[in-house]
Design a protein around this nucleic acid. Structure first.
Lengths: 344, 344
DNA sequence: TTGAAAGCGCTAACAT
DNA sequence: ATGTTAGCGCTTTCAA
């Protein structure tokens, strides 16, 4: 493995010049720069990350902490973050908290503090006070995605507004008996999320002059199976009979669609269903939904960090405070309610 | 951030002793070790990764290269690898090749060569000659998971045997017209995989004295939607009329189940379907399948690397050469064919 | 614009 | 068992 000295010798300059030429920091004559670049290329020289880090204190590596891996949202965020990081020449080190508590502790107390990362992105994390302290003693920039962390800048869609929009879509179609399958506050890591989504649902109903019925809310975990179970429950309870369901996630919504089918109900003829996410399977199931673009959230998180890591020259205006976009996507799982209400 | 000198002073020993005490390399009196540990804990000292790496040449970090992130198989492998790495105190740096070619090149020519990793795990990768060269100039251990790489030790289930088993399950139930939805060789990154799975399917048929019909093979990509389309095609073609389908992945199999339902066919009454994977959704859809335990493959890959990175003392026998396990899991999507064949 | 040289924080000979 | 010390490979003053 060629070192910086080899390149220096090869190009007939000092190591300092090689460093300057290759990193772009400090003045180098154009001709010299070319000579150095050529030498480096010829020798296949690549800077040693650890030596460079030790000397500069920067690692060109970002830590991404997620509670799980096997969920569409997280992998999408990671994918977006990774793509953007690569554009900046950064690596991404992944910390998955899905193990037991001891491992979780290890991540915060050891791994993240080893100074292997310049900053961290925390995805949908509900952190303990100790963990927040640990992150702060890191002294590095931190940005959250999808879950508010005490004292940490967080990117997140407006969960209330999103569910409100989904519910309003159903209302505008003429539905008045709308059920909600939401996250179970007691069982989710990010407890604010199911709460906010439920609030949006209720706000929309109230906005239409309706009173949210407690019985039309069914808690579930964010999986297809759980959505399926909840929907069966809801649809099977005689006095409830909703004509539409808004689920707090697409996976739950798909579960609801399948439950309706299994009960012989037509979607959207007998039941309209809308989810939230625009999950990769939403299109296949013809699911109407509100898209929340998680890859974009990952990219944005990186933008925020890069701005702190490499303060931009004056005049560059930050756009990272822009609210995160979400879009209603109407497919074939929602329609006007059948029968009496406004049929033609 | 406390440094090693602070700890040394605090514990009244030299930095060398601190290093030895904390790393476990080299002799240290028990009492001293405790004193050092206490001092380190009190000061919140954590070794600097870059300084340590520079001095030792080891990074305690493994690179994992995947072609995509948003697929159950990859995230499962990563999860398994991560869990095991954490047990060894290693970090995991993720390289995702799903970007454009320029980015892919950057990964191999820059990022992986920065000496940020001690070894790499390549998941389901079909590498170019240049990329293999790049990996080899790395001079670090490499292990592949799920796809053979020239000159690289690779962990992979026996794709032929797996599909053979799935097909034999159907044969044993009495099916004789069995269709196959497999990967499209031209469109997949890992072209050997669809080929091998198809071979296993054909071998099973031949083993039962049947002749594989070309028309009963339908190419697809590894998604639910593609499986759905292929199944509709197969089931809709009058002269084909299979009573069973073996799909090369669970997602495609689920697509086939849904296609059958949409055509008014009962599963397993009119059509049996079996997949391969034991995908997280397989249970929900009652899908019979052959499980391939990707998390385990990730763990095993780490085991192989650890053995090379930390050669075990004599007497420790490596078990990493054990064939990777796969298991037939019978759920409710497979049954004896209806009607004439052996019905009761 | 370039070079010389002093670290960055830790580890591992080597010496004791 | 512990301490002394010379690097690990690069970056960055400081001088020229």
């Amino acid at each position: 493995m060629a070192g910086i000295d080899d390149v220096a010798r090869h190009a007939g300059v000092s190591t300092a010049t090689v460093s300057r030429a290759l990193s772009g920091r400090g003045p180098v004559a154009a001709a010299t720069r070319d000579r150095v670049a050529a030498a480096a290329a010829e020798l296949g020289y690549v800077v040693s990350a650890s030596a460079s880090s030790l000397a500069t204190g920067r690692t060109r590596n970002i830590g991404v902490v997620v509670p799980f891996l096997n969920r569409w949202f997280y992998t999408s965020v990671i994918e977006g973050a990774q793509r953007r990081l690569m554009q900046h020449g950064y690596d991404l080190t992944l910390y998955n908290l899905s193990g037991d508590d001891r491992e979780r502790e290890k991540v915060f107390d050891d791994h993240l503090l080893r100074q292997r990362v310049d900053a961290v992105i925390a995805v949908s994390l509900e952190l303990t006070a100790t963990e927040i302290t640990a992150l702060h003693t890191l002294g590095k920039p931190i940005v959250g995605v999808g879950g508010p962390i005490e004292g940490v800048r967080t990117l997140s869609i407006d969960d209330v507004a999103v569910t409100k929009l989904a519910t309003e879509h159903l209302l505008s179609l003429g539905h008045t008996r709308i059920g909600h399958i939401g996250g179970d506050v007691d069982r989710e890591l990010a407890f604010h999320l199911p709460t906010n989504r439920r609030l949006g649902y209720e706000a929309a109903l109230r906005g239409a002059g309706l009173v949210p019925e407690r019985e039309l809310y069914f808690p579930a975990v964010f999986t297809m199976e759980s959505g399926y179970t909840a929907a069966k429950q809801m649809l099977g309870t005689p006095r409830l009979r909703p004509t539409a369901i808004v689920a707090a996630s697409d996976e739950m919504a798909i579960g609801a669609v399948l439950a309706a089918r299994d009960m012989g109900l037509d979607v959207p003829g007998d039941l309209s269903v809308i989810g939230i996410d625009d999950h990769e399977l939403a299109g296949f199931f013809g699911l109407s939904t509100v898209a929340q673009h998680p890859e974009l959230q990952g990219e944005r998180a990186v933008d925020v960090l890069m701005e702190q890591l490499h303060p931009p020259r004056l005049g560059t205006v930050s756009e990272t405070n822009t609210a995160l976009p979400f879009d209603l996507i109407v497919r074939s799982s929602t329609a006007r309610p059948q029968g009496r209400v406004g049929g033609r």
